[in-house]
Structures are given as structure tokens and as C-alpha cells.
Simulated assay, not measured.
Amino acid sequence: MTSNAIAGTWDEWEKEHCTPEEIAESDLRVALIGELIRARQERGITQKQLEEMSGVTQPVIARLERGTTSPNVSTLMKVLAPLGKKLAIVPM
């Protein structure tokens, strides 16, 4: 039996198919989503509870955590505030 799988790592594929800007955006998105999920779980808050605290609906929070939506800044600030987090612009 032969395999049709493509050999290599995600990093190799990403470097071959994405621009440095796209890679940076992806890395930032992954870090943001990871921090959001971590902060919610550390506080023992469900997505439904976060909905009640933030005013952002649970389905939107779920899509945000899955990375299937690109939320606007207002939505992010609403979700992060009850988690004790804020968006900041810092030098690179």
C-alpha cells in the first residue's frame, strides 16, 4: 500500500507557502486565542458564563476560540475585560 501523505513539517510548509507577514499574523492569532482560552479556563469560566459577563454571545466566543472568525477590536476588548486582560500595542 502506498501513502499519498506529504512529508515535512508544518513549519516547512508554512515557510514555503506563506509570506513572513502571513506567518507573523498567524503566530499572533494563535497566541491571542491561546491566551484567551487559558485565561477563561484558569478562572473556571464557561463560554456561556463569559457570554453573560461580556455581552458577546457564546457562539461568537466559540468561533473566536476555534479561530474560525476574525473578531473586531471591540469584540476582543469585551471578551478580554472580564478575564482581567486587555489589548496593548507594544514595541516589537
Rank of each mutant, 00 (worst) to 15 (best):
S70A: 09
R38W: 07
G34Q: 06
T46P: 02
R38Q: 11
K78I: 04
E14P: 01
A31H: 11
T75E: 00
T57E: 05
M53H: 01
G84Q: 02
V30M: 08
L87E: 01
S3P: 01
T68W: 05
A24I: 05
M92I: 07
S70F: 07
I37D: 03
L28Y: 03
D11R: 09
V30E: 13
R29D: 08
T46L: 06
S70H: 14
P91H: 14
M53L: 13
M1F: 09
W13F: 15
V60T: 15
V60A: 15
P59T: 00
T2W: 09
A81M: 13
V56R: 03
A24C: 06
G44F: 04
E42G: 00
E35Q: 10
T75N: 05
L32N: 09
E42N: 08
M92R: 15
E14M: 10
N72I: 10
C18D: 01
A39P: 02
A88D: 01
S74T: 10
E65A: 05
E12V: 05
Q47R: 06
W13H: 14
G44Y: 02
A24W: 01
L64S: 10
R63A: 09
P59C: 06
N4W: 03
I23W: 11
A88V: 15
H17W: 08
K86V: 07
S74K: 10
E12A: 05
P20G: 00
P91L: 10
V79I: 04
T46E: 03
L28I: 11
V30P: 06
I89W: 08
R43A: 12
E51H: 02
G44W: 04
E52D: 14
M53W: 05
W10K: 13
S26R: 13
C18T: 10
L64H: 05
I23H: 06
T9K: 01
Q47M: 13
S3E: 12
I61D: 05
D27F: 01
Q49E: 15
V90Q: 10
M1C: 08
L28V: 00
A31L: 10
E35A: 13
R29H: 04
A88S: 14
L83V: 00
N72A: 02
I23E: 07
I37M: 00
L64Y: 11
S3N: 13
W10Y: 15
Q41H: 12
T46S: 14
R66S: 12
E21I: 06
R43D: 09
P82F: 05
E42H: 07
N72K: 15
T57I: 04
S26T: 08
Q49L: 09
W10M: 15
E25H: 03
A7E: 15
T19D: 04
I61T: 02
R63D: 15
E22V: 04
S3W: 05
S70K: 13
I37S: 12
P59D: 03
M53V: 03
E42K: 12
N72L: 02
Q58H: 14
L64G: 09
T75Q: 07
S3V: 03
Q41E: 15
G67T: 07
D27S: 12
